[in-house]
Write a protein that binds this DNA or RNA. Sequence first.
DNA 1: CTGTATCCTGTAGGATACTG
DNA 2: CAGTATCCTACAGGATACAG
Lengths: 114, 114
Amino acid sequence: MYSAPCPSRAALDRIADKWTALIVGQLACGTRRFGELRDEIEGISEKMLTQTLRSLERDGLVSREVHPVVPPRVEYRLTELGLTLDGPLAAVREWAEQHINEVEQARLRYDAGA
Amino acid sequence: MYSAPCPSRAALDRIADKWTALIVGQLACGTRRFGELRDEIEGISEKMLTQTLRSLERDGLVSREVHPVVPPRVEYRLTELGLTLDGPLAAVREWAEQHINEVEQARLRYDAGA
DNA sequence: CTGTATCCTGTAGGATACTG
DNA sequence: CAGTATCCTACAGGATACAG
């Protein structure tokens, strides 16, 4: 069921990195420029932002539009495929918001008992 | 919105590791013993299985039941809180299964053009 | 402004061996 | 059977500097 070469494993690995869900979440709200993403996603380095965006572009989840002006203006948006991913990820984000308190309480209880 | 100390960021980081979604997915199908999980989740090491299970237990998502028999029998199952997480994660798994082909095609196109 | 290039570090995570 | 303990390495990812 969860054999290593299984497609769902591959796709899961694709999503389960530190920044993908965050970037997709921001782009789900609308088109973003490079600097906007960098500012909105606190703590991300330019390197990881670039790297993750390229990776998302490669996988057909994000499209990159370069406007040939100076200063350069590059806009990122979710593709149709990327939009289909935001639904599931939004569900996870929503779960996180709704249940993080219970998780933290459980953690305190566990640490107290140990 | 996505500030670093934001609760959803913390919870997202919790879920976005290599094994959590897989283990929760298996436990969603029912109670599992340590060895069953190790065999069903191909490629996981005993170290990471133990480590992730402990972490899930600490966060109140999984309960651990030790049967005092020889040989030892330890059963893991999702808690009520853990069950609420499986819904969102199932959505992501389902997305993965449905769209991995499109992702792989996009990848081929991208690599060809570059 | 939107990146690349380079260097460097921490740590996730694998391999192996051992124990109650 | 269900883990711990130990060791080790690859790579995620940060910092900094620079370029078109």
